[in-house]
Design a protein around this nucleic acid. Sequence first.
DNA 1: CGTTTGTACTATGCGTAGTGGTACACATAG
DNA 2: CTATGTGTACCACTACGCATAGTACAAACG
Lengths: 148, 148
Amino acid sequence: MWLRVDPRLSVPVYQQVVDGIKAAIASGLLRPGDRLPPVRELALELTINHNTVAKAYQELERERVIEVIRGRGTFVAARPSGRPPDYEERVKTLQDEMRRIWIEAYHLGLDADTVQEMFRAAAPGAKDAKEGTGDAVGRRGEIADEDA
Amino acid sequence: MWLRVDPRLSVPVYQQVVDGIKAAIASGLLRPGDRLPPVRELALELTINHNTVAKAYQELERERVIEVIRGRGTFVAARPSGRPPDYEERVKTLQDEMRRIWIEAYHLGLDADTVQEMFRAAAPGAKDAKEGTGDAVGRRGEIADEDA
DNA sequence: CGTTTGTACTATGCGTAGTGGTACACATAG
DNA sequence: CTATGTGTACCACTACGCATAGTACAAACG
């Protein structure tokens, strides 16, 4: 299974589901149009409550990451479709988290270049190549899968 | 005041205090040996409970960021003194957060180069110059002028 | 001694996360 | 039409963390 959750972690289980699915999409494991497991089925596999899965799906739908069709199922949405809701806010949050990382790195005594390198290495592409011209984050390789 | 907290935010107040003080140190606003306000005094200024401030101070002491002397006060510790406790764990957490940022950036439709640039801009040094050889994060020379 | 400081403790309120169970609304297939 | 599969909406309940409030204790210092 491409998803695992751990109730002992401090991050909420439903958030782990959200993050996991987003990661699977960003890495190309899930592609636009792919169908996600039904809430009850996924709940069974993860040994959590179906309400928890539902909460995750609702958050993902709110972020336009998936599309939900009542009675049919949930599907991976067709790409970062335009500007998701709260775009500005989320970018700001991203910047805040970046600053927080730098501060944390400082208190760990990490070298600035090391931090930069760590960040590059954390990218979904996960390669040392530079090549970085203009294509979207993740899935550098077979990026030509716009809609499905 | 170099510290503000907002109880409406989802991040806990005591954590905001921790982060704020760490930021103040990383930016050079607070320097090793500087004395922090007494718990009750800071609690008054921030309009929070003294227990909350105490919790923040305890966390900061656990991370070797400050030093506490009963009856005297709390002081900024003398630099990232060697390896703080949970060093390995915290580095791993840092890497997790970096991956999370990349994933979030992907779903916001951000360009990889843009993300890299955002990250560089979020550094405590906050300049566009490169110069970044080998010195620790933040406080390169004199340049620390970030708010907190 | 008394003051200043951090710490410890108890009690209380509050919000969120998670579970468990049930019921409803919609889509599709027979 | 019914039956099934799907997401959704409730409800009740538990557990935990955050924060407050008040009080008391412990260590340092003059």
